[in-house]
Design a protein around this nucleic acid. Structure first.
Length: 355
DNA sequence: ACTCCTTTGAAGCTA
DNA sequence: TAGCTTCAAAGGAGT
């Protein structure tokens, strides 16, 4: 079984994901063996999904024997993934930063690279480009943000911060650029108090309005601008939510969703996602590796921008919301256990001086 | 207005 | 540590 360590990997080393594909060929064979054998799709939705699959993906013929088979393969794959030592990725993510491999991003990721994304989103495809790849429509990273002068990095005499090379979309505005090499110092910057704005002054996709919903008119440029309802809520300011970085499949979905929508008449996301899930499995290991690689860069970038952030911050959000709703209807009575942990305030961010 | 659906992967939580 | 849960995106549908 060929390994991709040499070929597919970049300087960041995508070994983890690569190794995960060591038995991918077997799966692909199984997938193809089972092609066209599916006859037990009960509902119309599934039919539509499969119809789309057949018509759009006849070459790969990825129709498979229903969810159980899918799950088996999935589980199998996950096992391989789990075999992979996580020191490079997970360790990097959790540990303090000793280096920033993504600073060596290939040319397309650089501010002056060949990426020349469109500004306004008309369809999903035309949304802003992802900073890590020109392929991904990633509206969060819409580079047309007027708030960030595009020529900042070109100004003479400007101290070249390490994040400057990540992407034009993540460049620090000159006024807010810090000279500290410690990312935690960025986080203590006063700008972090602004809604939708990272402490560095970098508008980032991960920063969401307190409502938790992405409002396109407000977020087209990745910057949270107060709407009228928001202005009403101004009196009770809430912390902006930093979202999780997207994983490989999510990045794949972002890129392919519009294509699938265009190819079939489906609009329901659930159905679209089913198609995308199957197509994801039908991808070659090289194709998937591309997204794993991007996802890793996403995480690294996210980690650099929000060193203090943890997925824990958003963990249990939905449950909390439900519970709060119930509480409000029951007069706000909650057990001590219910308030344990979940309501614990995040560790205070110490100012630079203290650090 | 809110939640569900549906997918995969990463990370958190729990026993 | 294994296994389970939650959350990322998306937008129509249902409550």
């Amino acid at each position: 079984m060929p390994q991709l360590n040499g070929g597919g990997g970049d300087d960041l080393g995508a070994n983890d994901e690569m190794i995960a594909f060591k038995h991918e060929g077997d799966h692909e064979e199984k997938i193809r063996e089972s092609a066209y054998t599916e006859s037990d799709l009960a509902d119309l939705k599934s039919s539509l999904v499969n119809e789309s699959e057949i018509s759009q993906n006849s070459n790969s013929a990825v129709i498979r024997r229903g969810q159980q088979e899918d799950q088996r393969i999935y589980t199998d794959k996950r096992e391989h993934l789990d075999d992979v030592p996580r020191h490079q990725d997970g360790g990097m993510y959790k540990a303090s930063y000793s280096g920033y491999p993504f600073l060596m991003l290939p040319e397309p990721y650089l501010p002056n690279g060949p990426v020349s994304p469109s500004s306004n989103k008309v369809s999903v495809v035309q949304q802003g480009m992802h900073p890590l790849t020109p392929l991904l429509p990633y509206d969060h990273f819409n580079p047309s943000a007027p708030h960030i002068p595009t020529d900042v990095s070109q100004k003479p005499g400007v101290h070249r911060h390490q994040s400057q090379e990540i992407s034009g979309f993540y460049q620090l505005p000159q006024a807010t650029r810090l000279t500290s090499t410690d990312p935690s110092a960025w986080f203590s910057h006063s700008l972090m108090l602004q809604s939708g704005m990272h402490p560095t002054g970098i508008p980032h996709p991960a920063i969401m309005p307190p409502s938790g919903k992405q409002e396109h008119d407000q977020f087209d440029r990745n910057i949270y601008v107060k709407s009228h309802p928001e202005a009403k809520r101004e009196k009770e300011p809430k912390k902006p939510v930093i979202k999780k970085p997207l994983n490989a499949f999510m990045l794949y979905m972002k890129e392919m969703r519009a294509k699938v929508i265009a190819e079939c008449t489906l609009k329901e996301s659930a159905a679209i996602n089913q198609i995308l899930g199957r197509r994801w499995h039908a991808l070659t290991r090289e194709e998937q590796a591309k997204y794993y690689d991007l996802a890793r860069k996403e995480r690294q970038l996210h980690m650099q921008l929000y060193p203090s952030w943890s997925a824990r911050d958003n963990y249990g959000k939905k449950k909390r919301r439900k519970r709060d709703k119930q509480d409000s209807s029951t007069g706000g009575k909650r057990s001590a256990f219910a308030t344990f942990k979940e309501d614990a305030a995040p560790a205070p961010i110490l100012p630079m001086e203290v650090l």
